[in-house]
Amino acid sequence: MFEARMVRGFIIKRILEAIKDLVSEASWDCSTSGMSLQAMDTSHVSLVSVSLKADGFDKYRCDRNLTLGMNLASLAQIVKAAGNDDVITIKAPDDADKITLIFEPKSETETWEYEIKLMNLDSEYLGIPETDYSVKINLPSHKFQRICRDLSQIGDSVTISAAKDGVRFSTTGDLGSGNVKLNQTASADKPDEAVTIKIEEPIILSFALKYLNHFARATALSPQVSLSLSKDVPLVVEYVIHDDDDDEIGYIRYYLAPKIEE
C-alpha cells in the first residue's frame, strides 16, 4: 500500500506545472524515504529531477518500493482541477495498475476522487556525476525568470559569464543584443531578494533560452533559485522546496547541456 497526503496540495500542482511540458512520460519512484522522478526531454538536452521527502507529507506510507509510470500531462491536467487550498492524497495498492488521487477542499465536506492508469515505461536512468562547480549563483527566482524571458525576445541563446566583478547574462540576435549584469547584494535583510555569487574560477558558457524558460516555470515553488556552472558541463538550475517552517522538503533540479563552438 502506498499513500501520500499533502495538506499544501498546491505544491504538487506547482511541481507538475513545472515539469509537464518538458517531459511527457515519467516514472515516480516511491520508497520509505519519499517520492522521486528523473526524466530527460525527448531531445536529450535537458533532464529534470524531482525529490519530495517523506517528511514533507502530512501522512506518508510506503510498504514496499513502487514505480509509478504515467503520462505527466494527463496527471497535470487532473491535478489542475484541485483547488489551491485543497488537500491532495495519492494512493496506490502494491500491485497497482492505476493510482487514485483524492482532493479535499479544506472548508467543505466533499471529496473528489480520480483514477489514473499507470504505464510500463522503459526508464533510462542516468548517473549524474558529483561535480564541484566553479560557479554557484543564488538569485531571486522571479529575477531569473525575467532574465530568461526578456533575453529570449532578442536571441535564442544566453551566454553566462561569471568573474570577480559579477555575473553577466548576454544574448545577441537579428534585432541586436541585450545583457543583464548582476552583482552580489550587500545586505541580508531580505534573504529572498539576495543575490550571492561564489566563484572558484571564472567561466563563460552558453545555453538555449528555450529550455531555461521551461525551467523558470518552477518559479512559484521557491523564492530563490541556484545556478551551478563549470566549464563544459551541464548547468544545474535548482529550486529547493520548503514547508511552512522553512524546512527543506524537496527540490526540482534541471540539468541543461551547454552549447559549444563548432
Binding site: 530527460m40 531531445s43 536529450h44 538536452v45 535537458s46 533532464l47 533510462e124 536512468y125 542516468l126 548517473g127 549524474i128 556525476p129 541563446s157 552558453s206 538555449a208 558541463v233 551541464p234 540539468y255 547541456a257 551547454p258 552549447k259 559549444i260 563552438e261 563548432e262
Partner: peptide, 14 residues
C-alpha cells in the same frame, strides 16, 4: 554558430 550538446555525453546510463 554554436552546437547544442546532448546530456548523454556527460551522464552515464546506469
Amino acid at each position: 554558430d554554436k552546437k547544442q550538446m546532448k546530456l548523454d555525453k556527460f551522464f552515464k546510463k546506469s
